[in-house]
Every structure is written in structure tokens, then in C-alpha cells.
Design a protein around this nucleic acid. Structure first.
Lengths: 193, 193
DNA sequence: ATTATCTATAGATCTATAGATAATGC
DNA sequence: ATTATCTATAGATCTATAGATAATGC
């Protein structure tokens, strides 16, 4: 029953990480606190030493999922920090990404669930989306306004395609949507350099 | 306790209709059978005279929601049955549509939930999406292949935008996404006639 | 006679809390 | 002494079923 302060911080972090994964896989109501604790080898009684409520975990896990996506995107960035949009679409619209929502985009997996939660959660979501559009926009040419417009266009097209591909599951229709949208996006991208 | 055969058929239909609405509003797990029956003025015990299981209701309600959208879209069609794409975007990307998921697009509201259900439900979803792309494609110029590509592009852009707008709720960000994507879509539409 | 609906309940969850236990850390 | 975790449980909920009741429809 080891429980140093370092253990506590680690348990908190492991809970957020596991929740971020399971929520994306099964939805925000799709896993119980008992099952989450069990996944860490713990029993459910200790949960409330780490979070005031299940909602508090949901809010933290949602932000953690966004941060994971940001870190993954950062690996596709050049020296200026601008993401390689073509490679990003290759990953985002892949069957691998479609089939592993637990490690993938939180927006496509959780936006519908988030739209049904309280405004505190939705305010955090808005901030994250705002940041996302800024980060992606930086990879486009033009002034700030044009960059933002292009980021909104680029991302909503990918979100929509992944949403449908996941709903359709492993199928011809799913591949058709992923391939079609990827080709459309990549053919309209600005030439790098 | 009236219960003629006509009553039974009507109760079944009313259940499907109420479920189609509540599922879009609250998610596929967001309303209990007891609450649904109560909404019709009935008690929960009678539910299984109408459906073999909750899953059976989910499957029927999902299809009902798609059919509602098809009927709504049909009102925007010209004499040839081709939908008016600009007016469709006006409605689809409106704040009114964002704020009434219970009467709106099932794809944006339910695709993430559907991706987590059994393959029988997902197969029905695929059929409906296939029909959607065919119906929308008919409004675009070119051969069948080009029409389908344009329909996939047009719809995934709208799905993605509505998904984000709903996640963001009533806010500047939400309006920005709706307005930006609507303008982008409408400026690229073929001239009617 | 049949059956749509009702009342009642079994059995399985789920969140949250209370109190015990066994480590850490002063 | 403090506290992270454990055991146990309250209280709420949910799906599904059993059996009673009161209409329909032969």
C-alpha cells in the first residue's frame, strides 16, 4: 500500500492519462471510476483523494487529450514550428488513426459529448479549439485573418471526414471518405518553401 | 388503459420519434427507457411489448433521425429533386440548427456514439451515409464519380463545422466557425441553372 | 381469448462517502 | 501524525422480466 507524495502525484497523472484514453475510446460516460482505478491496479475507494468529482476528472482528461494531440502535431513541425500540413493529413486521415481513437484526436471523438456538458468544460474546449486554429493557421500563408480562415477550413474538413470514417468503421465507405478528403486537402495546399 | 392494435402501432412510432429526438440531444446512452415511456405518458413496464431490447430502439431511432433529415432536405429541392445547396448550407450552418440537435442532423450528433456500437448498427449507418452522398451528389455537376466526390467534400465540411460549433456552444468562436465554413462552401458552389 | 399497459421487483450497475489499514515523513 | 489506499456500503439509477389488470376483438 505504498503512498508517498510522489506516488500521489503519479497516481493523479496516471488517472488523467488513462481517462483521456478511455473517454476517447468509449465516450465521456463510457467507463466507470471503478474500472479506471482497476486499470491502475487500485480500488475505487481512493478516487476522491485525487479528484473532487468525476466531472473534475473529465475536465482534466479532456485537456490532457488535447495536449497529447498538440505534442503529436509538434513532431510534424519544421524549424519555424510550422506543421507539415500534408503529412498531418496523411496521419489524421489514416485507417490507423480511425481505428485508435484512444490515442488520437479528441475533437472528433469527444466534441458531441462535450456539447452536452456544462459551460465550464465547454469554455476550456473553446480555448483549446482557439489554440488549435492558431497553431494550424501558422502553417498557412497570408495575414492572421487569412491564416485563421484557412485553419478553420482545413481542420473542419478533417474532423468531418474522421467522424464519418469512424462511424462507418472498417469498410469501403470509410476508406473512400478518408482518401477523398485527403486528396482534396492535399491538392489545395500551398507549396512548401 | 386503452390498447387497440392501432394504439400499439402508434405507441411504437411515438417511441421511435421521441427516442430519435432525445438520443440526438443527449447521446445514445443519455436517456433511460423509463424516462422515454414517461414522456409518452406510459410506464416503463410496457416497453418490451414494442422492442426486443434497448438496442433495437436505438437502431430504429437512428434510422428515423436520418429519415427526418431527408424529409427536411427534400423541402429544399427543385422540380428535378436536386437540393438547393446554398440554402441547405444556410440552414445547416445556422445557430438555430446548432442549438436544436434533437430536430437536426443525426450524423453530427450521433456518429461518435455510433462508432462505438455493434456492426449491425454501423452497417445501417453506412447505408444511410451512402444514400446521403448519392442524394447530395445529384445536386452537383459532372459524372457520377465527380458528383460523389463533391458530395463527400460538401457534407464532411458541414459535419465538421457543426460538430465544432456545437462543442463550443453559443459563443463568438462558434459563430466564427459556422460563418467561415458557410462562406467558403457557398463561394465554391456551381452556379445554379 | 388476447394483449397493451400497469405495478413491482430482481439484478446489475454507478458515484460518492465512511471508517479501517498500513505506509510515509516529521 | 498524516494520508494514500483499501473494504464496505448507502443511495440512486438502469435494463429486463413476472404477473396483474383492463381494455379490445373474435
Amino acid at each position: 500500500m505504498g503512498h508517498s507524495r510522489a506516488d500521489k502525484a503519479q497516481t493523479h497523472e496516471r488517472l488523467v492519462e488513462a481517462a483521456a484514453k478511455r473517454f476517447r475510446e468509449r465516450g465521456l460516460d463510457g467507463i466507470s471510476l471503478a474500472d479506471l482505478m482497476k486499470e491502475l491496479g487500485l480500488t475505487h475507494g481512493g478516487f476522491y483523494k485525487h479528484f473532487a468529482s468525476r466531472d473534475a476528472l473529465v475536465a482534466e482528461a479532456m485537456e490532457h487529450a488535447f495536449e497529447e494531440s498538440e505534442r503529436a502535431g509538434a513532431k510534424l513541425a519544421d524549424a519555424d514550428g510550422h506543421i507539415d500540413l500534408a503529412r498531418y493529413a496523411d496521419f489524421y486521415l489514416s485507417e490507423a488513426h480511425r481505428d485508435s481513437p484512444g490515442n488520437g484526436c479528441a475533437v472528433s471523438a469527444l466534441s458531441a459529448d462535450i456539447s452536452r456538458r456544462d459551460d465550464a468544460t465547454r469554455a476550456r474546449y473553446r480555448e483549446r479549439m482557439d489554440e488549435t486554429f492558431a497553431r494550424i493557421g501558422a502553417a498557412f500563408p497570408g495575414d492572421a485573418k487569412a491564416q485563421r480562415r484557412q485553419a478553420i477550413e482545413y481542420m473542419t474538413r478533417m474532423y468531418g471526414a474522421l467522424l464519418i470514417a469512424r462511424g462507418a468503421g472498417d469498410s469501403d465507405l470509410s476508406r473512400e471518405v478518408l482518401d477523398t478528403v485527403r486528396e482534396q486537402l492535399q491538392s489545395s495546399l500551398p507549396t512548401p518553401g
